[in-house]
């Protein structure tokens, strides 16, 4: 019955080795799917390459459906999984800042590490930037502390927020994802991918 480490079925020392193995898988996929090139990533925002959308939504929907199935068979206790707490204001403003960082930097933190590992110097610069950004946040935290901690809702779930069942929401997620996969090639055909 999962999750194994929080339930004490595997001792916590293994957690770091598991983290390393999970990371290797994560990095392998990010690089293999082409996320190690900022040209592929920002294609999403200029309409010439939707690989991010395809991988991202397939991954998210697969995981959500898989966790639901594992819950049904009693293999995992959903209540024990870490759910990121919701802070409305911080999530929206932080997200917008991240969006700005995405179109200027061309990476997100995870993909920048994967891209830096194959020798992309622009990704390495982005990684340097993340450390500076963390430092900047730490230093300005007292100024924005009240805002950052406002609108706290705890670990609420999207299906509760929308007032539907978990299964229905997951079905709609898959439906929307599949719909987008049919739609995006229409845009891709119209926009030329820049070659460099």
């Amino acid at each position: 019955m999962g999750p194994l480490v929080p339930q004490g079925i595997i001792s916590p020392e293994w957690d770091f080795i598991i983290a390393l193995v999970i990371g290797i898988g994560f990095g392998f996929i990010l690089e293999g799917a082409g996320f190690s090139s900022s040209r592929n990533l920002v294609g999403l925002f200029y309409g010439y390459d939707f690989v991010v959308l395809r991988v991202f939504f397939t991954g998210g929907a697969t995981a959500a459906a898989g966790i639901l199935l594992m819950d049904y068979f009693g293999w995992i206790d959903i209540g024990q999984l870490y759910v990121q707490p919701t802070y409305w204001g911080a999530a929206i403003v932080g997200g917008l800042i991240m969006g700005l960082g995405f179109v200027t930097g061309g990476f997100c933190p995870g993909t920048s590490f994967a891209a830096a590992s194959i020798g992309k110097m622009d990704a390495l610069m982005f990684v340097v930037g993340t450390f500076l950004g963390a430092f900047l946040f730490g230093e300005t935290y007292p100024l924005i502390q009240n805002f950052v901690n406002s609108g706290y809702e705890g670990g609420i779930k999207i299906y509760d927020s929308l007032g539907m069942s978990r299964g229905l929401f997951t079905f709609l997620l898959i439906l929307v994802a599949v719909g987008m996969f049919y739609f995006v090639p229409v845009i891709e055909k119209k926009v030329r991918k820049p070659e460099y």
Binding site: A61, A65, L68, L69, D71, Y72, G74, D77, I78, G79, S165, R166, G167, L168, T170, F171, L173, I174, L175, A177, V178
Partner: peptide
């Protein structure tokens, strides 16, 4: 994909406990 979607939709939910 849609088949899996319908399947998870129709699966009975286990009560979620944060206990």
């Amino acid at each position: 994909a849609l088949g899996i979607g319908v399947l998870v939709w129709l699966l009975p939910e286990r009560p979620e406990s944060n206990d």
